[in-house]
Structure formats: C-alpha cells, structure tokens
Write a protein that binds this DNA or RNA. Structure first.
Length: 937
RNA sequence: GCCCGGGUGGUGAAAUUGGUAGACACGCAGGACUUAAAAUCCUGUGGAUAGUAAUAUCUGUGCGGGUUCGACUCCCGCCCCGGGCACCA
C-alpha cells in the first residue's frame, strides 16, 4: 500500500536524501566535455533565527533551473556557502563572551540541515565559509594584490578607461621620470616631483605618495562613525543618517582608514552594465550610484584690490556651461579651502560663524533641513571669464565639498536651488533661455529646454548645441577643460571590529607593509573580550603576543563585503591551497550564468563584486570582465502578523471590530496561537506570564485579531519555519507551492491557504501510477493521439516557462496536464515517464521515487529532458471565433491550411453572420489564420 | 521633487506580447459517499438583466480620452500603491 500520505512522503523524501548523499549525485566535476552552466544563489549570513519560508524562495528557483539544465545536458555548478563574518555574532559575543566562531558554526549547521530538508542539489563538497582561515587566506591575498597595484589610464583613448597594473611599474616610472607623464587614477598629488626628488625622498615620504595611487590604500577620509556599534559604516549601510542595522545615529568624522579605489572603475562599472542581462531597476540603481555627469571645469579669477592675490581663482564644475551668461553669483562649500583666503574683513565674523555652524551640523541635521536656505556673502568677487561681469562669492551648505570642485557657478534662471537661493537673498536673475518651458517661475519649468538669449555668441542656439560651443570656447580660452565627474566615492574598507578578516598588514616604522605571502593566512587571534580597548583601539588591540616579527599588525578588520566580493570564484575550485581559484577551473567555469538574490544588494555587494572581478581581470588572475551574466531578483515573502488590542492601562483586550470604541495599543500575537483570525484565548494566556490574567471583550463569542503584512521576523511573532511545512506536506509540496504563489520577482505575503491545492496535485500525479489498491502499475500500451498531444503540450510549455523563469505558470501547466490525464484514465508508461523527468526539477523526491518504480537504476539527473515534438501539437483544424464588429458571435471550424478567401466565403454565407449583417455586404472581413475571423459591418 | 516598477473576480494570479479576459489554484455554494464528521470525488462560481430551463443580451482589466476591424496589452492626460535616489551643480 502506497498512498501519497504524510508517512509515505516522509519515507520517500528521507530515503532519497540519503541516497543522493551516499551516491554523490550532486558532485560536480571541473573536467567534463559537456557545456557548463553556473547557477548561483546569494549565500546567506547564518543568523541565529534560522531559515524562514521566505529564504528558500530564490534557492528553490535556482535549484529548478539547475536540475533542468542538467537534464538538458549541461554540467551544472550549483553551490552553496555562508557569508559568515558579521555583526550579529559579534554583538552576541560582546554580550555573552561566547566566541563568534562557536555561534557561527552552530548557526551554519542549523542552516545546512534546514536547507538539505528541501532537497536542493547543492554540491556540498564545494561549500565555502568566509570566516574559515582557508577561505579568508585568499581574501587577504586578493587584498594584497589590490594594495600592490595602481590604475593606469595611459595608452587608452578614453581617459576614463585603462586598467590596474602592478605597483612596481609605477615605482619604476617614478625612478626614471618622477610622477610626470603618468596618467593614473589617484588622489590629487599635492606635489609634482622629479625622478631626482623621488630618489631623495625618505621611505615614509615615498610610501605616502604611493598610498595616493594604490587601489587598496590608507587615507584620512571622512567616515560614517557609528558610536553605538563602535565602527565605521559604508555609505550604503547608512540610511537617513542612522545605521541600517540597529538604527543608531551616525556622525561624520575624519579618520585614517583603509579604502578601495573603486572610483577608478566608475566608467567601466557603468559601461559594463550594458553588457549584462540584469533587471532594469538594479541597473538604474547602480547608474545613479555611480552618478556620471559630463561637463566643464573652469576658473573664475578672483577680483581683488590686493595685488598678491590675483593668481587666485575659484574653480567650478558645471554640466550647463551653456548658461554661463546667466551666472549672477557663485557659491562655495563651507569646507572649501578658499573660504579663509578670500573672505573680506567686513564679512569675516559672519562667515566664520556660519562655517562653524555648518561644520558642526551632523549629516543627519543637514539632511532633515534640506529645504532651509542658508548662506553668507564672503565679500569677495570673481570675474565671469566670458563676459567680465563681477560676480559675488557666497558660502552656503547646499554646495557639497565632496563633489566636483566644491564650488558652483549659480545660474538662478535654470537651476531651482540657485533660484531659491537668489530669491531668498534677493540676488538678480538673468534669463538665458527662452521657450514655453524655460521660465523657472512657472510650474512647467524644464531646465533643458528652449533657445539661448542674453548669451552673446550663443544666442539662438538650442541648449545642447550651446553646451558644445561654450565648451569649445572654454578650451580655446584655456580657462578650463571638459570633465567627467562621478558621484561614487571610494569605498571604505575597514571596521573597528573583531569578527572579520584581519589585514595582512603590519606597520614597520610607520609604513604599512604587507606580510609575506607564505605567512598567509593572518589568523584572528584569541582575545578576552570582543569590545574596543580602554584606549579606544579596536578589539584586536587586546590580542596578546600578536605581532609580525615584532611589528604591530593592523588592528582593524575587513568589512562584511570583503569575503562576498569573490566567493563565486572559490566555488569553482574550493579545495585549492595554491591559488584562490586555479587557472583551469577558471577557464572552464569562467563566470556565473544565472545569479538569483535580493535587490537590496544592488549598490553594495553587486557593485563591489563587479569591481573586484574587473581588478582581478586586469591583474591577469581571471578571464571574466563581468562576474554575473544574468541576474534575477527574487521578491521577498513577507509575514502576516496578528494583532490583539489592549485597552490602554488595563489588561483587557478588545476584539478587532470593537477596537475603535476604546483607546487601544495593538500588540503582536504569535501566529501559532491564532487560527484564521480567531485567537485561541487559553493558549494566549499561557503564552506569556504577563498575559495570564488577561480579559477579553469578544464579538460573536470570539476574539478576532487584526492582521498586518510586514517583514517576517521573530520580533513580530510571524515567522513560518519551512521545517514545519516540510513535516506536514513534504519538501516537494513546499517547493512547488512557493513557486505557485506567484511570479518569482514579486514580493508577497505568506499564506498557507493554497498549499492543499499543490499537495492534491502531487497526490493525483502519484495516483496516476498506482491502482485503486495503491499498487504501482503502469500500462505498456501505445499512446493515443490525444494523450500524446497532452504530453507534448505540457513539455513544450514547461520547458518554455522554465527558460523564462516563469515557474508559477509551469506548476499550473502540470496541474492541467494531470487533470487531463486523470480524466482520460491514462496510466501509460510512454506518457508518464517523460512527465516524471519534467516534473523532477520541481518535485525531486517524488520524481526520483517514481523513476525508480518505473524500473530505472541510474540517477534521474542523468536522464535527458524529453524533447517535445511539435507534430503532435499540430491541429488540422482550428475553431475560429467569428467576431462581428469586435464581438464574438459564433465559432466555426476550418482547416488550418484553408485559403483565406475560402474561409471568408464560408463565414459570409453562414447563418450566424447572415443574422447579424441582415443580408448586407460587410465593409470588411479580416481573417487571421489560426486566430480569429473578424467581420466589420 | 526626480527615476524605476505596478493597479485584472471574494483571494493568489493567467493571458501565446494587439486576437474568445479571468487559465490554474484557494475560498465559497450545491451534490455524491457516510449514522455523522473529516477525507475524497463531481458540478457551479466576475457583475447585471431576462427566463422554469438550456440559454440570451448587456457590462466588465484604477479613472478619462485616443489609435485600431479588434486594446489588460499601444499613445495622451489624471488618480492610487510599491521600490530606489534625494541639495551631485
């Protein structure tokens, strides 16, 4: 007796997991004549809460694709691992003294067992763990390569391209020519030096210069310091002036920090987006983050009575050089170096106090006061180089020191911020554009519109032609150059934390120096507590006897994104202890064909990974310019929280529809003690001690809870554990149900209501193979045309849907197929066997069991996905809807190869059409073969 | 404010990309089996009107207009929801 019952499911699924494991079905070889296909999931951070039903959504999809591609004859790499360094384990360590390694290992093993319950086809022998020394050895090694390189822009026509090269080539150049003739992407060097000077520099001075060129470098930078977390955060970890994790306040501080010169790659990161198949929103986000703007940089010479100052000029960056005749004032950032120098005596007091206030205002305050206009006149004037007009210079904090030159030429007639500023301080506005949308005072204002006026040689031109012409003039006048600016800043690469990769760096006479490659990895030392030292050093400052030949190590650790910026390479060759990824593995797998994960990583992980991939390519270690060819963002499964309403100041709860009559505070109730919307009052009282004496105001004898859709989280008591679903329905049902829920990319709340439908389908499918007594039985008869048609229609749709990543419709397709076969009472092997193969990517356990019952001894994954045959789908006739004036009024059958004219004749002569046309000849008749016949009267 | 997505039954959603809107599933209603319930199976199910009925007609994809023989799909204007960016010159 084998009904597809709960017990039977448990038996089947357990059995196959064991067999897969023992037989090694999912081991992947790097040496195969088959074409490769690499399917990657964004690896999880193993949190203490374990997996909830939302996590596997993307993993299920990628597993379906992996299994499908294997059946299609590809050698598929489908690995899984853990992004194991991170803050929660460390916070937990600070509170409990428990070593983060211990917590992390425990969490990893929970995750692994939860994942294997779902029947994923991962090759676990390729598991990576970013916190394992054998892994982070190579993270450190990559850091060393980046430290030892610079970005050369020479020899490339487009200045913004170029590539990373070993630092030795730069030093060789310095020795011969100083830093002249170098086209490097670097911090503006304060000095230009000759070869002679270079040779005269001390080691410290030389290193100081090299740091300006290295791709991984140490520099004094403004950082986002989060005192509560005791660490710096990158820009993408700060949201609205508070930390993304925990929501603690963040302030701007200047600190000596490790950085990554990602800005050197801005142009390649941008143009590379056109070569990869990624969702539009992610590409947009990366484009915005990179923030390219093309314009001009030019000098406005300072006008002053003081003769010694006449060298000074204010350099501005503008994308709208065409509007230069509309400049009526100039604004520089409070932090601008010229503020000191140019402010006149009369204005000094006002300027100093303004600058003081602006500097002390935190980023957060500055953001929240975006709309407030403030600024102060410096007393200084510059000369507009185009028309010689005298232009007053103001200081205002709406101009940012960190972007462009920290100074703007204000054109109030075409820029809304400049306009607001001009209005507020009563500065003049000169219109330079004329057209229906060119008036800034009007609602329909459009800055890029109209024709130039009041602009001398530009008059009459369109704005974009004027930009071109004005830019030419700037260059011929030698007052400036065309320039491209990027909003993207270099990435901070250091944390004042314990649980991260140590830097392979020590300090020798104040010079940051790399350890020998043979001394990698630099392992995390044991320390007695995981918090900063009393003197404010990072936790690693507590380590005893931790040094490199007597020299002190760098005490910060690498940020969370270090380990995840190259992990897909490690999966290709995970055991290699000579290289981070061997050449031959690299050649075979090359890049990721399909990457599935959440869009929250759009400007973090996904950008850093592209950056490292490009840098490694420049240095000759990898072949791929882009790591992830196709990206899919799976949506998030949200939780449905249940709420009870407590009357303020009492222990009485009112039912949902009565809550408006009282002052109430909603509290989250554990969803396991709510049935539908009805609260189980006894279990509620037993749930928490403080609720034992609760009283209730009921409606219709029941307590009804409210609901809210929010993030699935322990904190809201709305977590659904996949293990629970697996134990009552089985992994196959859960897998199919999660796919059935809707399109992969869409976020949706979890509800278990529909899961029965999927379970019933699987049971019915199972029953096709079993007789009324539950004994396995298939017929060896030939299939009928009709049965073959059902089979091939299903195969065609399912294959097509999987390739389109439209898994919800493929599940529906299987249901339709099974319903049809059921009503035909078809139990023929020739029909059922191909369906088992096609269904197996979705329901691998069930598939494998039926495959075995059908008499196969080899793994199902070695089978071939059945090829559908169009000829079975061909109809010789088609039932045409006959529409009259757009409305379907009749249906008629015609052979598919029947000529249009003949169809027209028959349709016109038909009774149905005669009735509607009342005998009159129609205006027009349109026959779309295989679709519709439309009669227009 | 700017840039992306998206609005289809009671619910989750389909729609071969301009060709019978609502497939498939949940829920609901009715029926069969059963002493009864659960489970299972069958039937119906966007709305309105007419009819004992089979059925027929109208209406219907956020709102208003347009293109077309034909629009959920394309174009213009508006409303609402979700996501991202936010003084970037």
């Amino acid at each position: 007796m084998a009904d597809y019952s709960k017990e039977e499911i448990k038996r089947i699924e357990g059995k196959w997991r064991t067999i897969w494991d023992q037989r090694g079905d999912y081991r992947v070889s790097n040496d195969s004549p088959k074409p490769k296909y690499y399917v990657l999931d964004m690896f999880p951070y193993p949190s203490g809460a374990g997996l909830h039903v939302g996590h596997p959504l993307g993993y299920i999809a990628s597993d379906i694709v992996s299994r499908y591609k294997r059946l299609k004859g590809f050698n598929v790499l489908h690995p899984m691992g853990f992004d194991a360094f991170g803050l929660p384990a460390e916070q937990y360590a600070i509170q409990t003294g428990q070593h983060p390694r211990v917590t992390t290992e425990k969490n990893i093993s929970t995750y692994r067992s939860q994942l294997s319950n779902l029947g994923f086809s991962y090759d676990w022998s390729r598991k990576v763990d970013t916190s394992d020394p054998s892994y982070y050895k190579w993270t450190q090694w990559i850091f060393m390569q980046l430290f030892n390189s610079w970005y050369n822009r020479a020899g490339v026509s487009d200045l913004n391209h170029g590539k990373a090269e070993p630092i030795a080539t730069l030093i060789a150049h310095f020795e011969k020519h100083g830093n002249q003739g170098i086209q490097a992407y670097c911090d503006e060097p304060a000095v230009v030096f000759s070869a002679k000077e270079w040779q005269s520099f001390t080691a410290v001075q030389r290193e100081d210069i090299l740091q300006r060129y290295r791709i991984a470098y140490l520099a004094e930078t403004m950082v986002n310091w989060c005192a509560a977390l005791g660490t710096v955060l990158s820009n993408d970890e700060v949201k609205d002036g508070v930390s993304e994790r925990g929501g603690y306040p963040v302030e701007r501080l200047k600190m000596l920090q490790w950085n990554m010169r990602i800005s050197a790659y801005a142009e390649r990161l941008l143009s590379g987006l056109d070569t990869i198949d990624w969702p539009e929103p992610v590409r947009e986000m990366q484009k915005n983050w990179i923030g390219k703007s093309v314009g001009c940089e030019l000098d406005f010479p300072l006008l002053t009575e003081n003769a010694s100052d006449d060298q000074l000029a204010v350099r501005v960056f503008t994308t709208r050089i065409d509007t230069i005749y509309g400049v009526t004032f100039m604004v520089i950032a409070p932090e601008h170096e010229l503020v000191e120098k140019i402010t006149t005596k009369d204005q000094r007091a006002a300027v100093t106090s303004y600058v003081e206030i602006a500097k002390n205002r935190s980023e957060r305050e500055r953001m929240s006061e975006v709309k407030r206009i403030s600024g102060v006149f410096t007393g200084a004037y510059v000369k507009n180089p185009f028309n010689g007009e005298k232009v007053p210079v103001w200081v205002a904090d709406y101009v940012l020191a960190g972007y462009g030159t920290g100074a703007v030429m204000a054109v109030p007639c075409s820029d809304t911020r400049d306009y607001a500023f001009a209005k507020h301080f009563d500065l003049p506005v000169i219109p330079v554009l004329e057209g229906p949308h060119a008036d800034i005072t009007k609602e329909n204002f459009e800055p890029k519109s109209g024709k130039m006026i009041n602009s001398d040689f530009l008059n009459g031109l369109l704005w974009n032609d004027a930009i071109e012409k004005a830019a030419e003039r700037v260059e011929t006048m030698k007052i400036g150059v065309r320039r491209v600016n990027y909003r993207m800043r270099d990435a901070i690469f250091g944390r004042q934390r314990y649980w991260g990769e140590p830097f392979p760096v020590y300090f020798k006479d104040g010079i940051p120096t790399l350890v020998n490659e043979s001394d990698l990895p630099v392992t995390l030392p044991e320390i007695d507590a995981y918090k900063p030292t009393e003197t404010g050093e990072p936790p690693l400052g507590r380590a005893k006897d931790w040094n490199y030949n007597g020299y002190t190590y760098e005490l910060t650790t690498m940020p969370g994104w270090a380990g995840s910026s190259w992990y897909w390479f490690r999966y290709m060759d995970p055991q290699n202890d000579k290289e981070f990824c061997g050449k031959s593995a690299q050649k075979y797998w090359r890049d990721v064909d399909l990457y599935i994960g959440g869009s929250e990583h759009a400007t973090g992980h996904l950008l850093y990974s592209r950056f490292w991939c490009k840098a490694l390519k420049d240095l000759g270690y990898v072949d791929a310019e882009e790591p992830f060819l196709k990206l899919i963002n799976q949506g998030h499964i949200q939780g449905v929280s249940k709420l009870a309403y407590r009357i303020n100041g009492t222990n009485t709860f009112v039912s949902y529809n009565l809550r408006k009559e009282y002052e109430v505070t909603p509290i989250h109730v554990d969803i396991s003690i709510v049935n539908g919307d009805v609260l189980d009052i006894e279990r509620f009282k037993a749930w928490r001690d403080d609720l034992r004496d609760s009283e209730f105001k009921l409606e219709a004898g029941q307590y009804i809870c409210g609901s809210e859709v929010e993030k699935m989280s322990k904190r809201y008591y709305n977590v659904v554990n996949p293990d629970d679903i697996v134990s009552s329905y089985g992994a196959d049902t859960l897998r199919m149900y999660e796919m059935f829920l809707g399109p992969l990319e869409i976020s949706k709340p979890w509800n278990t209501h529909g899961i029965d439908g999927v379970y019933k389908f699987l049971r019915r499918f199972w029953n096709l193979f079993h007789d009324a007594q539950g004994v396995f039985r298939v017929s060896e008869e030939m299939a009928t045309q009709q049965e073959l048609k059902v089979l091939h229609k299903t195969l065609k749709k399912v294959a097509h849907d999987i390739e389109q990543f439209s898994f919800n419709t493929s599940v529906s397709e299987f249901m339709i197929c099974s319903n049809e076969l059921n009503s035909m009472k078809c139990n023929k092997r020739v029909i059922l066997e191909p369906l088992v193969i096609a269904l197996a990517p979705f329901a691998p356990h069930l598939g494998e069991e039926l495959w075995q019952l059908l008499g196969h001894t080899t793994p199902l994954l070695d089978a071939t996905f059945p090829i559908y045959d169009e000829s079975y789908l061909k109809e010789n006739a088609f039932e045409y809807p006959i529409s009259i004036n757009g409305k379907v009024r009749a249906k008629m059958n015609f052979a598919l190869d029947m000529p249009r004219e003949d169809i027209e004749k028959v349709v016109l002569a038909s009774e149905a059409v005669q009735k509607w046309t009342e005998g009159k000849a129609p205006k027009k008749i349109i026959v779309v073969p295989g679709r519709i016949v439309n009669v227009v009267i």
